[in-house]
């Protein structure tokens, strides 16, 4: 990983917008406002607070929930048999699944069972997590009843302690972004990426490691989420990015920047959709028939998703 070129690229990006950048940094240095972690305060609703982190009860349930947390924050190490890339649950659900507007587990848990258009039937929470493994982790779905699913579900249930079932809690999911003033543009997005993202995620999107531990997650390429993941949709990625990135500076990017950089990231190559039918056109028509998916479209001369059937499951070498 050429971190030096990361910096160089970031600096080069800055030079192009030196005036803007200098003003931005001078204005925000050291006094950047916290991310909108409690936006519901503004709307007058009291946000739900999960129990203190790690204060699990000394019961069989508490032990299961504690295991769930461990899997949540280091998924490839704690559940290697199901993980096919370098991502962890916590990469998209910050603060161990506790943070509002970062698709927190306490808000998700109370919304299941739930009908999902993605698969056309009512899903249990366990089935929903199976989807995370299949798509976001580019891995294998743990069988229903598997210890990994039981632990993760227990952890989510623990976080939702005291939350009203079926309620749409403030902070749930990623706050949907209004349509961008200009149509999302991956060319502009590349500039945003260079300036705000490449330093950590790398100019090639491959992430960066501390020794063997992946610290900054890959955003595209063979070790990232596959085409079936929710965040492979531009609107979902834009909403996550706007609320949560750059890390610790959520809310810093403009809506337009978030849309543009999401369009850039989600028009890079990534692993095949496991629902691949044998035809890119047919797979697009059946599962990606939306302006939010670049699957089956050409980007930089590459047919996205055009690299054949899904690769065999390959857990991370360790």
């Amino acid at each position: 990983m050429s971190g030096w070129s990361v910096r160089t690229a970031a600096i080069a990006g800055l030079v192009g917008v030196a005036v803007f950048g200098a003003g931005l940094l001078a204005g925000r240095l050291g006094q950047h406002r916290p991310a909108p972690s409690t936006p519901s305060v503004a709307s007058g609703k009291k946000p739900f607070s999960p129990p203190p982190d790690g204060a699990f009860p000394h019961t069989p349930f508490g032990r299961e929930a504690a295991l769930g947390r461990e899997i949540f924050v280091d998924t490839g190490r704690a559940a290697p048999q199901f993980v096919g890339n370098d991502l962890k649950c916590v990469n998209c659900h910050l603060d161990a699944g506790r943070l509002p507007n970062s698709a927190p587990m306490w808000a998700a848990y109370v919304m299941f069972p739930q009908y999902r258009a993605k698969n056309g039937h009512v899903n249990t929470f366990a089935e929903r997590i199976q989807g995370c493994f299949r798509y976001s982790m580019n891995g294998r779905a743990p069988p229903l009843g598997d210890k990994v699913l039981v632990a993760l579900e227990s952890y989510a249930a623990y976080l939702a302690t005291g939350a009203p079932h079926g309620a749409s809690l403030p902070g749930q999911g990623y706050p949907k972004l209004k349509p961008a003033p200009l149509p999302p543009d991956s060319g502009r997005g590349r500039g945003v990426y260079t300036m705000y993202c490449a330093m950590c995620h790398g100019p090639d999107g491959a992430g960066q490691s501390s020794g063997a531990a992946v610290v900054f997650p890959p955003l595209w390429g063979p070790r990232s989420y596959n085409w079936g993941a929710g965040i492979a949709q531009i609107d979902t990625a834009a909403a996550f990015i706007k609320a949560n990135m750059p890390y610790s500076q959520g809310g810093r990017l403009s809506d337009q920047q978030a849309w543009d950089v999401a369009a850039y990231i989600d028009s890079r190559p990534r692993p095949q959709d496991p629902r691949y039918t044998g035809s890119v056109a047919e797979t697009r028509a059946r599962f990606h028939n939306s302006a939010q998916s670049m699957y089956g479209k050409a980007a930089s001369g590459v047919l996205l998703g055009g690299d054949g059937p899904p690769k065999p499951f390959a857990p991370r070498a360790r």
Partner: peptide
């Protein structure tokens, strides 16, 4: 540790 690595041993040129 989310940026400096789980053991605080740094990440390449970044942290």
């Amino acid at each position: 540790g989310a940026c400096h690595g789980p053991d605080g041993r740094g990440v390449g040129a970044v942290t």
